[in-house]
């Protein structure tokens, strides 16, 4: 049986650039939407990463601290280390890197899982995405399509 790609889109639709991931998955073409399992999860938690064995996961989110509109892609397992280089603090839940770290400790993420981010600069309540993010949203969508197709290609021989 072919494994599915799960796309976990993080963010809030009404918080400026934080909507980027949600807008990107909503713009995916129908074929990609049928092939992938798309979940809009708001804030990433470790339980979101308890997917069925064999699934490949792509976490997509807006990232603060890189140039606005720039695209960042890396193995999901590297997110905690990357995040550690930024001043991340929260007393209200695990950060995305913390959630991934907990999932890694549980062995529920693998080497094929990816993180895809777009740099953001404006996160105000009720704001629209900044021009930098709006201008590069197409690039984020294209990268997501490639990642979803990559999963299918990898799984073809096993189908």
């Amino acid at each position: 049986m072919s494994a599915t790609v799960r796309i976990l889109a993080c963010g809030a639709i009404d918080r400026g650039d934080d909507a980027a991931a949600l807008l990107a998955v909503r713009r995916l073409p129908a074929a990609t939407r049928r092939a992938a399992r798309i979940e809009e999860v708001g804030q990433l938690s470790a339980e979101h990463l308890l997917g069925p064995a064999g699934d490949r996961t792509v976490v997509v989110d807006c990232v603060h601290g890189i140039p606005p509109g720039s695209i960042l892609e890396l193995p999901l397992a590297e997110l905690p280390a990357v995040e550690a280089s930024f001043p991340v603090t929260s007393t209200h839940g695990l950060s995305p890197g913390g959630a991934v770290g907990l999932a890694a400790a549980l062995g529920t993420i693998g080497p094929r899982d990816r993180f895809l981010g777009i740099g953001g600069e404006s996160f105000g309540a009720g704001d629209r995405p900044s021009p930098a993010v709006a201008d590069h949203l197409g690039e984020l969508v294209a990268r997501l399509i490639r990642l979803a197709q990559g999963a299918a290609e990898v799984d073809e021989p096993c189908a």
């Binding site: 339980e47 979101h48 907990l102 549980l106």
Partner: peptide, 24 residues
């Protein structure tokens, strides 16, 4: 921390996360 707990008691923490997931 739960991270340290998860390293040694994987099934226990996963059970907790699945319950939390169901509540959500």
């Amino acid at each position: 921390s739960a991270l340290e707990l998860a390293a040694d008691h994987r099934a226990v923490v996963e059970r907790g996360l699945r319950l939390k997931q169901l509540g959500n």
